[in-house]
Nucleic acid binder design. Sequence first.
DNA 1: GTCCTGCTTCAAGTCGGCTTGAGGTCAAGT
DNA 2: ACTTGACCTCAAGCCGACTTGAAGCAGGAC
Lengths: 143, 143
Amino acid sequence: MDNVEIGIGEVVRRSGVPASTLRYYEERGLISCVRRRGLARVFETTVLEQLALIAVCRSAGFSLDEILLMFAPDGRPSPNRAMLAAKADELDATIRRLASMRDDLRHAAACPAPSHLECPSFQRVLNAPDLRRDGDGGGLVGR
Amino acid sequence: MDNVEIGIGEVVRRSGVPASTLRYYEERGLISCVRRRGLARVFETTVLEQLALIAVCRSAGFSLDEILLMFAPDGRPSPNRAMLAAKADELDATIRRLASMRDDLRHAAACPAPSHLECPSFQRVLNAPDLRRDGDGGGLVGR
DNA sequence: GTCCTGCTTCAAGTCGGCTTGAGGTCAAGT
DNA sequence: ACTTGACCTCAAGCCGACTTGAAGCAGGAC
């Protein structure tokens, strides 16, 4: 296998993830190095895929803790298929909310009403109970 | 008009937004009270719609600053139709990313591969350049 | 032998969006 | 007169995800 060992500098170069972040991820248990050469971390190239996975999940709004739960330590077997499915459902709900938001924004951009608040379509949105109540339940996404 | 004046307690009761948040929003220029009765803020009921608008936008991932820019102070006329359209496009891109993420999650939940990292479909995601590069450009959403 | 480079640790700082707490004001009720 | 309750201000704290900075080690080039 071409599963070479690489130093942190190489990981940074090939993943674009800063060393400080790599150390932080390691501390959080998201990645780990095979061993140390002196003090210096030595990684396997598989860490690059793990990092890509983390990046994808982050960009979909999952927290580091959630990622940790979804994909067992170092992206492995995972007893979490149910959880993945649940997360997919969550995403689905989010997507629907965002889609309606997008439509409303487009409408607002085109609508000639003097104030967005007076536009009938916005009134509709604002009165939609599923957005007014939760405060967070929607479980959105974060940077 | 039934545009009654109400106290902060009433706003809290009817919007569900805590007083501390209302004061914070006022400080940030997102809402404002018509006047003071002594020290106490007096709001118009329209603030309730403004708050609903803010809630919707927040739940779609916009920051308070963005909301401020999109809907001029107190949700008014706004010279920002172009910006609203731009935001809609942003949302559209986000939605597409989330949708593909959702599909991948569903696949991962069903896929029998021992490690998600070994699953061919995940390999595909991880190698998709548009997710690996940006680090943030996607401009996702936040709680 | 000492300088540079690349790595290390650990503590503290940053940012957004609030919340919390101490201490103060003010009108109404008893 | 005094307490209660609703409101106020201002400063500080919190969380997640990092970044930054100071201070140190390890190995090679000169």
